[in-house]
Design a protein around this nucleic acid. Structure first.
Lengths: 204, 204
DNA sequence: GGAAAGTTCTGCAGTTCGTGCAAAGTTGCG
DNA sequence: CGCAACTTTGCACGAACTGCAGAACTTTCC
């Protein structure tokens, strides 16, 4: 079995490194923190840091290693004949639910990314890594060619954009509106052809 | 005036560096080429390289320094009362026309990015930098709050996604269909609410 | 319990990146 | 020419990241 002490220690070390990286980055700025400092704060050697994260920025951004495969798995779980945008909406809602669990860390990361665009870039780049796999699944379902038709990659890009935008608004507005509601609103706008906003609450 | 010899030399050095970076990256792989080699191929000192590009990857990807401001300028040139998605479509068409000018280099970069995801990440990250500015312009036009409403950032994300996807399909299919047509198809799909593909040529 | 096998951690050495600084070289202009 | 503004360059430096090989630890199996 694989649930031994070894697995637990690895997971804990990873969390310790990510958490130390985030804390130090907030205190000193992303450029003020070194890998050596992160490793020391987590109680491991600097060399070990690179057994867990490929780069310093990755540790700060900390896209969970399983988040990407979960996105794909959630999409594949949807019924085959469901319209692509609806299947993707469900997938994004599932991801949003996971985000809401670590709401506090998410907020810190969001603020950091606001001030230091390089982190925002790294973050969105992480999500772009799954785009290809998701687009291939949509292509398979629709019988289209992912390399020759615009639809599969486009609908995936729009869906991940909706996730990104909804999360940003959620963080920016201090969670006055629940994240699932924002995700739904974004997907409603996509489904409506993005023709101007469906006014959520027009001011007097 | 600023159109002296100095300006011309700077532009030429920049092109020499970018072109050397791309050629060497194709021959040796992105990791096999060093800044020192790029600088030598361009006939300048390694130190000078960093006066033109912030990183080695930036030189290979080479998003023209003016491309980002051109996107924003093209959007601002559109009439105020035009529907946002239509204004963005025109902006993307203008960008696509610029892309078509350097079609050959574009193709090499596309192939490199296919094989080395880190370059693709850097590339899309470059485009993400303008998202904020574009979203603010859309927010201004629609009277929405860019931080509190999903619509402005969402429609911009979808439009840039359409540009990215259309360009990818264009490169992938060997330019059998003109880029403007692919861009139009992508925007038609967005305007139609992404509800399955508007079949371009259904198989028998 | 204890040895063998498999893994993770760690130190070390080395390459490359990227930056600050100040001197040297170029260009623009009167 | 001669001064001002700008660009290039060399130097030094810290930090990122990688390969390697041995130490330390877990797991497994007897």
């Amino acid at each position: 079995m694989a649930s031994g002490l070894r697995e637990r220690k690895k997971a804990e070390t990873r969390r310790a490194l990510a958490s130390a990286a985030l804390r130090l980055a907030r205190e000193l700025g992303p450029d003020g923190v070194t890998v050596e400092a992160i490793a020391e704060a987590a109680g491991v050697s600097p060399r070990t840091f690179f057994n867990y994260f490929a780069s310093k920025d990755d540790a700060i951004v900390n896209i969970s290693p399983t988040e990407q495969s979960m996105l794909l798995a959630d999409l594949c779980d949807r019924p085959e004949d469901e319209p692509p945008l609806d299947a993707l909406r469900a997938m994004v809602q599932a991801a949003a639910a996971r985000f809401a669990e670590d709401a506090d860390e998410m907020l810190v990361r969001h603020r950091l990314a606001q001030e230091h665009p390089s982190l925002a870039m790294r973050r969105s780049a992480r999500f772009a890594e799954v785009e290809r796999a998701l687009a291939e699944e949509i292509a398979r379902r629709t019988g289209l060619d992912v390399d020759a038709d615009t639809y599969p990659a486009l609908v995936v890009a729009a869906a991940l954009g909706a996730l990104r935008v909804a999360t940003a608004v959620w963080n920016e507005t201090g969670r006055t509106r629940p994240l699932p509601e924002l995700v739904d609103q974004a997907f409603d706008q996509l489904a409506a052809g993005l023709n101007r906003a469906a006014a959520p609450a027009s001011p007097a």
